[in-house]
Lab assay of single mutants.
Amino acid sequence: SEEKKKAKERLERLGASSELARELLDRANGNAEKAERLLRKLL
């Protein structure tokens, strides 16, 4: 979806690899905010 694509791009801008961004979104069930929080914990 367009929303998921935007979320993935945002995670990548924050420093996630394409693969990591995809994994985070999967774990967050597509929830962009939750995926971002997970990423911030990792960085």
Rank of each mutant, 00 (worst) to 15 (best):
S1E: 14
S1F: 12
E2K: 08
E2W: 10
E2M: 11
E3L: 11
E3F: 09
E3W: 13
E3S: 12
K4Q: 14
K4W: 15
K5I: 13
K5S: 11
A7V: 08
A7Q: 06
A7T: 06
A7S: 07
A7R: 05
K8S: 13
K8H: 14
E9Q: 12
E9L: 08
R10Y: 10
R10N: 07
R10D: 05
L11R: 01
L11V: 02
L11Y: 02
L11G: 01
L11H: 01
E12C: 08
R13I: 08
R13Q: 12
R13H: 10
R13V: 07
L14Y: 04
L14E: 02
L14G: 02
L14C: 05
G15W: 04
A16F: 03
A16Q: 02
S17H: 05
S17Y: 04
S17L: 05
S18K: 11
S18P: 15
S18V: 08
E19Q: 12
L20V: 06
L20A: 02
L20G: 01
A21G: 02
A21H: 00
R22I: 15
R22G: 11
R22P: 00
E23L: 14
E23C: 15
E23K: 10
E23H: 11
E23N: 07
L25W: 05
D26K: 13
D26N: 10
R27P: 00
R27T: 07
A28Y: 11
A28S: 08
A28G: 02
N29K: 09
N29F: 11
N29D: 11
N29E: 09
G30I: 02
G30H: 06
G30P: 00
N31W: 06
N31C: 01
N31P: 01
N31V: 06
N31Y: 03
N31Q: 05
A32D: 04
A32H: 06
A32C: 08
E33G: 07
K34Y: 15
K34T: 13
K34E: 15
K34H: 14
A35S: 02
A35F: 03
R37K: 11
L38A: 09
L39D: 00
L39K: 01
L39S: 00
L39H: 01
R40K: 12
R40V: 10
R40P: 00
R40E: 10
R40T: 07
K41D: 14
K41V: 13
K41Y: 15
L42E: 04
L42K: 05
L42W: 11
L43E: 04
L43T: 05
L43W: 09
L43Y: 09
L43I: 09
